[in-house]
Amino acid sequence: MVSPAVVSDLYPLSVGDQTLLIRQTALVGVDYVANSGQPIRRVIQHGNPIDVIDLNQWLQQPIGEQANRLALFVAGRASLAVVVDQLGDPIRAALTVQPLPSLVSDSLLDPSILGIIMLDERPCLMLDLELFVLVHATR
C-alpha cells in the first residue's frame, strides 16, 4: 500500500469534463492554439513546429467549443507540448494524493499518473507532466 503524499502549488487543467492536476513547476510556458474541434498534433512555437499530445484525445474527452485551447510547454522538454481546453488558477493549498484503487493500479502501466486528488469531492488525476511527456514521446 502506497502512503498518501501531500502536494501543493498545482495547476488544474480542464480536459473535457475532467480536471487534471499538475505541479506548477512542470510548466515553462503557455500559448493559445486555435480550436478546430479536432485533436491537435502540432503547434508552431517561435516559427518551429512542435509535436503535441492532446490530452482530450488521451482521456477520450470531447473537445470544448471555445475559440482557443492552450498548448502547455513542459520543463525540460522543448520538443514536445501538451494541449488542454483550459488552465485554471493556481492552487496553493496542500492536497493529499491518494493511491489508485488496486483494481486500477494492477492494470495501469503509466507511471506518470501519480494518484488521485479530491477537488470539490470529485476525484482528479494527479499527473507528473514531465514524466508524462517522456513516457508518451516514446510511444
Partner: peptide, 18 residues
C-alpha cells in the same frame, strides 16, 4: 455519476468514483 477516467487501464475499468 461520471467516473474519472484513467487512461491505459483494462477496458472494463470505467474509472474512479468518490
Amino acid at each position: 455519476r461520471t467516473p474519472t477516467r484513467i487512461p491505459g487501464t483494462a477496458a472494463a475499468i470505467m474509472g474512479i468514483i468518490n
